[in-house]
């Protein structure tokens, strides 16, 4: 939307005002995330820029909070827990979700929209309600304060994303390919791994990423279900914010931002790959 050569003064003013407004909104979106990165190198235990930091005095910066993070067993423990829980629930959610999406995309699936609605429901029900329900039920069957309980809960919360992304990939799937494969003598398993899987892989991976981030970032269910031994990073941040607020949280936050940038880049690469496979390239 370049400014046209025939634009009058009013249009030029509006053009720049509009651009300025948009810039402000983009700033609103990105500033908080960028601000915490330098703050996490603050040598003082403050949440704001000291005068030394503004003068770029090297003594005002330090890795103090990162050291604190690495040397604190509570934090390192929570990192381990987060990864165990997120990886286990991602694998479960991806397998269950992909199978279900394959079933849902078959033209003969009965009660399709009802089943789809029920399978998607963990994404729609407010987390506090899910957490409360799971808390009662999982306590009754002895799954509270166990890794298994949290993994199952996070799997339930992550599957809708896998179902949605894989179903979306399957919308454009040409079913004659699997018929051709069967016609050429492949059994259903071979057909699945050699023909279907490579084609829907981008959808499966992005669904898995969503499931991973859902579990990795989830705190409400963990608040209700986890005991001290199952504390995850977000749970640790939660008590960090509520109880002893220290810039270690900012160091952790910075690391998490780096992880999200990596995730974002992976997704972008997947999208490009998908476009290339379909023969569309960005203009």
């Amino acid at each position: 939307m370049a400014i046209p050569p025939y634009a009058g003064p009013l249009e030029t003013t509006w053009y720049f005002t509009f651009r300025f407004l948009c810039a402000c909104i983009f700033l609103f979106l990105i500033t908080p995330i960028l601000v915490i990165i330098p703050l996490s190198f603050n040598i003082e235990p403050y949440f704001t820029f000291t005068s030394g930091m503004l003068e770029f005095d090297p003594d005002a910066y330090s890795l103090r909070w990162y050291e604190d993070f690495i040397n604190n067993t509570q934090w390192t423990h929570s990192v381990k827990n987060s990864f165990i829980i997120a990886i286990a629930s991602t694998i479960l959610a991806t397998v269950l979700g992909t199978l279900a999406a394959l079933g849902l995309s078959k033209p003969h699936m009965p009660y399709r929209s009802l089943v789809m609605g029920l399978l998607i429901s963990p994404m729609i029900v407010p987390l506090i309600i899910s957490a409360a329900g799971m808390y009662f039920f999982y306590s009754n069957i002895g799954l509270d304060q166990t890794f298994l309980g949290i993994i199952l809960a996070h799997t339930a919360l992550g599957t809708p994303f896998v179902v949605i992304t894989v179903t979306a990939t399957l919308v454009g799937f040409d079913h004659s390919l699997s018929r051709a494969s069967a016609n050429l003598g492949a059994n259903p398993t071979t057909t699945f791994f050699k023909v279907i899987m490579p084609l829907i892989l981008p959808g499966v991976i992005s669904g898995a990423l969503f499931a991973f981030i859902t579990s990795f970032d989830e705190v409400v269910v963990v608040l209700f279900l986890a005991g001290f031994d199952q504390r995850t990073i977000p749970r640790q941040m939660w008590s960090g914010i509520r109880e002893q607020i220290s810039p270690t949280i900012l160091a952790v936050a910075t690391i998490l931002v780096m992880i999200s940038i990596a995730l974002l880049a992976t997704l972008e690469l997947l999208r490009r790959r998908g476009e290339k496979m379909r023969g569309i390239s960005p203009g």
């Binding site: 269950l96 394959l102 699936m109 399978l119 309600i129 899910s130 039920f137």
Partner: peptide
């Protein structure tokens, strides 16, 4: 066949989510 593919997730969601709610 379609039902069998959906069944594992459906049963899982039923027990881990819908019944608790």
């Amino acid at each position: 066949r379609a039902l069998l593919l959906v069944a594992p997730l459906f049963i899982f969601i039923l027990f881990s989510f819908l019944i608790p709610i």
